[in-house]
Simulated scan of single mutants.
Amino acid sequence: MNVLETDLPGIGRKFHITTRGGDKLVVIIHDDGRRELYHFEYDEPDDSISMISMDDDEARIVAAIVGGMTYVPKALEKVDMAFDELIIEWYKIAGSNKAVGKSIGELDVRQNSGATIIAVIEKNHSKHVSPGPNFVIPTDAILVVVGEREQQNLFKRILMDGSGNIDESSGI
């Protein structure tokens, strides 16, 4: 598979994908979250034969389906076993989250939830892969977190509570 990525100033980013089988797909991700997918003819690579437009939520659902998160084909079961019960979640951080302005270490994320923040994408599109304990959670960022279902639930509580100390009796 061949993937070419191009910035589209004022619009977003374009991904030109050619599969091993020769299919051509163009995906445009708009800055406002919309996605457009174009499929092209084999014989006429400049003629689009179909187009789909999706909002951000729809695109994430389709990505989960295509990525095998809702159904794992039999041939991929061995790969799935390597990940076992791990799930990757994306959390949009609102100003109301009490974790905003606190560091990962201050929240003691790993100790209190078992989950791991593997990336942070800020509003200005700057990316932080494997942020360390001194990284401060910014508002309007997206946190990419890996962990088992219960660990993800505990992590959500940390985001809401902001203390890093989970009190099971409080219902938080």
Rank of each mutant, 00 (worst) to 15 (best):
E122K: 14
N124S: 09
N134W: 04
S113H: 01
P133L: 12
K102W: 07
L107Y: 07
I117P: 07
L107S: 02
V120E: 12
H128F: 12
G114R: 01
V129T: 13
H125R: 10
I118A: 04
F135V: 10
S126L: 11
G114S: 00
G105M: 00
G101M: 02
S103F: 01
E106W: 04
K127Y: 13
N112C: 10
S113C: 04
H128N: 11
N124K: 10
A115W: 01
G101I: 00
N124W: 07
D108S: 08
N112W: 05
H128G: 09
G114P: 03
H125A: 07
A115M: 01
I104T: 00
N112Y: 04
E106T: 10
S113I: 12
N124M: 02
G114K: 08
G105W: 04
K127L: 14
R110L: 07
A115H: 01
H125M: 10
N124Y: 01
P133H: 11
K123Y: 15
H128D: 12
Q111M: 14
H125Q: 10
G105S: 03
V109P: 05
H128C: 10
G101P: 00
S103M: 01
Q111N: 15
A119H: 11
D108V: 09
S126V: 12
V120G: 12
Q111W: 13
V109K: 04
T116H: 05
I118P: 01
R110E: 15
I121Y: 11
N112A: 15
I121C: 12
S103T: 03
D108L: 03
S126E: 12
I104N: 00
E106M: 11
S130I: 00
H128Q: 11
N112L: 08
H128R: 12
P133I: 10
G105E: 02
E122W: 00
Q111T: 14
S126P: 02
N112M: 11
H125V: 08
V129H: 08
K123C: 10
L107P: 06
R110Y: 04
H125I: 10
P133M: 14
V129A: 13
P131A: 07
E122C: 11
A115G: 02
G132I: 06
I121S: 11
K123E: 15
S126I: 13
I121R: 14
G105V: 06
K102G: 04
A119L: 12
V129K: 13
S126Q: 15
S126A: 08
P131W: 02
L107T: 03
S103I: 05
S130N: 11
H128P: 04
A115P: 00
V129Q: 13
V129Y: 14
S103A: 06
I118Y: 00
R110F: 09
Q111I: 13
D108I: 04
I117E: 07
A119C: 14
S126T: 11
L107W: 01
N134G: 09
E106V: 03
G105A: 06
P133F: 10
V120F: 09
I118R: 05
I104A: 00
I117C: 06
V129E: 15
G114H: 00
I117N: 01
F135P: 03
S130V: 02
A115T: 08
N112S: 14
H125F: 07
N124Q: 05
D108N: 06
Q111A: 15
V100Y: 05
I118E: 06
Q111R: 13
T116W: 02
S113E: 08
V100S: 01
S113F: 01
H128L: 11
R110N: 06
S103H: 03
G105L: 10
S126F: 09
K127S: 14
